[in-house]
Design a protein around this nucleic acid. Structure first.
Lengths: 150, 150
DNA sequence: TTTCGTGCAAATTATTTGCACTTGG
DNA sequence: CCAAGTGCAAATAATTTGCACGAAA
């Protein structure tokens, strides 16, 4: 179940609107990437996005375009970059109601999202105390997932 | 003040011993890198390590060797890799008593360490509850540091 | 038609690898 | 002497950039 996919206005629609508002034209490649991301709950890498679009999407999109589009979306805070230290960056739609962090299995490389209110509370308290204007935070837990732990 | 630098046995000594125990020989480049890391509290990139050694260290060490040595040390859990999404990896000595996380200023790029017991507690509780064998965790806070926030 | 969007190929950057030479034990 | 350690140059891999062409407004 995609977080917020059935909301009144889907992430994809919001993204399209935000892009238009920011003065961007409506291009085919951009629409295809947004469309794919809208159907995702977890983070995808640029290559995965390219492959998925070439294979199952309405049209192929060049790698460079994928990166450019993701960069725009990140700039507008519509997408967030997730780097869990696998050398490649992953990207996922930013859904306010779907704030979460990631577990990474160091065996199979799987990236699994999770939410935790206690953790968020700690971070909020901590941020308030900090001599630093904290705007964002990322938590990564590493270990063996159930399957790999055996 | 270096965390634990005045302990009975410094991180550098422990590292040297651990390396010997793991069957590695005592090479000049390796000793130089350990020596430099022993004097650090914050994470350095491979390039910074190379430059620092070439400039102020007892001897220069080739970039490739720096990476190889860091990889060994990471494998023995003597060094931990810190990736805060600046495209390059940073490395710091793992000192059990100096566990901390990082603040990253998105203006000046500065990486600042911090500790927080409440945060650790939340993560511990969370880990226990998880269907996942959590062995490690990283928290990165992003925002503007005091200077850059103006 | 004019500017923006996109594809393709070449460039960049961090990191890794292959291989010959050196050195510790 | 022999395996492990190191430097150097070449190889990778992810990401970015330059430029020409096609498409939106």
């Amino acid at each position: 179940m995609a977080v917020g996919r059935d909301a009144v206005s889907s992430w994809g629609e919001q993204a399209t609107r935000a892009l238009a508002g920011a003065g961007f034209r409506r291009g085919g490649a951009r629409a295809a990437v947004i469309d794919l991301l809208d159907r995702q709950d977890c983070a995808l890498s640029a290559v995965e996005i390219e492959d998925e679009l070439r294979r199952h999407g309405e049209r192929g999109v060049a790698r460079a375009s994928v990166y450019r589009i993701l960069e725009e979306l990140e700039g507008l805070r519509l997408v967030s970059r997730v780097e869990v230290g696998q050398k490649l960056a992953r990207f996922e739609p930013s859904r306010p109601e779907g704030h979460h962090h990631h577990l990474v299995c160091h065996e199979c490389g799987q990236v699994i999202p999770f939410e935790d209110a206690g953790l968020e509370r700690s971070i909020m308290r901590l941020s308030r105390r900090m001599a630093f204007d904290v705007e964002q935070h990322d938590v990564v837990l590493r270990g063996a997932c159930r399957d790999c732990a055996g």
